[in-house]
Design a protein around this nucleic acid. Structure first.
Lengths: 249, 249
DNA sequence: ACAAAAGTGTTTTTCTTACACCCATGT
DNA sequence: ACATGGGTGTAAGAAAAACACTTTTGT
């Protein structure tokens, strides 16, 4: 809905300052893969509450912004990247428990952002310190950010199954080995290389080969072919996570 | 994030009434299946803007409520159902475009709700009129509710593939034919009954048989066995939508 | 007897899986 | 030579799709 009286409790006259206001913010779970590990961007809090604790980057939605616009602005500020227009940014969900910020009523729209390479954050804005931290040892975070981060991880893991999202973790040109590493890092297991390769190449629009020559993978081994992200968004059929031991009947 | 100064634009002193407030509301896309068609709950607007137009039910989030709590309260008010505690309610996403309500800044957290049978809405609250409308002829709705409704439909359709959500459209005890109708109605096609049956029964925890006897389906035909919703939440492997003609390469 | 809906069986095809194996490069 | 990672092939098994067929009810 939008502003309209229901339930007999909400104002109809729109006296904009008569009722208890909600602050609306965005929180960002910015994920990347560095050295084969899933990392998350965190900022150190300077003041109470949770002073000295790490938190997800974020900030207020300004009066003329949508949450998406605010999220992209914050992403640029916190990472220090010049161009964030091509980066993957997606709404996760909204957190609105009354007590989640002890000071006032704050409703926060959370986003997940996926980055390919990972330059050290430039610590823009006024954030005391911004830094990449391994996902596994990120917590405990301020506020309800542990939960937000866990939700983000779960969502990204699920999206890898049925969307082409994995390419968002890769640079513009990448090898199939790098793409496979994305899956293995987020899912936390290993995949069969020949089968992974077949599935990816059999999905139209997932990746497309780059006409140029092959590249070294970092020294050893046969040079790998380069691919670009394709035009497809969905994966049909999906690339299912290998079933964990013990879960099936 | 939560209230914290970033980017140099947000207040740090928390003068709760000094800045332009955001109104926070919930919008509900309440879906059900009636007579083999997908129906959505709509309310008729009494005043401007969009007076006389149909809209999704919803309302303000009260100062001590989470968005989820507000959504369930609105659901009870608008449907007139005595007990909405068991009904499926899930956050869809948040809509925050600055111009989506011409009067003031309204950020709305949208939810999807799924109902089994469908009593005519009792028009609780102050909504002038509440009514079930076929999904296909629901629009055009007020505000950005066409978009919200379309997003809800897409989300529910996708969730049928990899979750046990379909049982939320069914009464406590149902036949496999009814369950199949849910899929066919939401997806808009036909499924092969023997194969559907096998897939459902092969998925542990999706449905479980009711010890009692068989029931008539409405007159003709062999009485069908009754099932209850199982304990599983996810569907492994998923029940994939039949690919539409023309989409695969 | 017939229509309608539930339920079972079977065959064909497709996809997944688990490997074995070769290729190209750096040390 | 050999370790390392890229890439190809293939045979066994599992799953999905298509369709024929039987069962049980109401009219």
């Amino acid at each position: 809905m939008t502003a309209r009286a229901t339930g007999g409790s909400a104002p109809e006259g729109y006296d904009k300052h008569a009722f208890e206001p909600f602050a609306v913010t965005v929180d960002l779970a910015v994920l990347t893969i560095r050295a084969g590990a899933l990392d998350v961007l965190l900022v150190e809090r300077g003041q109470e509450p949770y002073a000295g604790r790490w938190a997800l980057p974020g900030g207020f939605v300004l009066p003329d912004e949508s949450a998406e616009t605010a999220a992209r602005r914050e992403l640029a500020e916190e990472t220090g990247l010049a161009d964030v227009s091509g980066l993957h940014l997606e709404q996760l969900r909204t957190y609105s428990e009354p007590g989640r910020d002890p000071r006032m009523r704050v409703v926060s729209v959370a986003f997940t952002a996926l980055l390919p390479d990972a330059p050290e954050p430039r610590g823009g804005g006024d954030a005391a310190e911004a830094r990449w931290r391994p996902y596994d040892t990120a917590g405990p975070l301020a506020f309800d950010h542990d939960r937000i981060l866990a939700d983000a991880h779960e969502r990204v893991g699920a999206q890898l199954e049925y969307s082409c999202l994995a390419t968002a973790f890769c640079p513009p040109e990448f090898t199939l080995g790098e793409l496979q590493q994305v899956y293995e890092t987020v899912w936390g297991g290993t995949l069969d290389r020949p089968n992974f390769r077949r599935k990816v190449l059999a999905t139209p629009g997932f990746v497309e080969p780059v006409p140029g020559a092959a590249r070294l993978t970092g020294g050893r081994g046969k040079p790998a072919a380069l691919y670009r992200a394709g035009t497809a968004a969905a994966l049909h059929p999906p690339l299912l996570r290998p079933p964990r031991e013990g879960s099936p009947a």
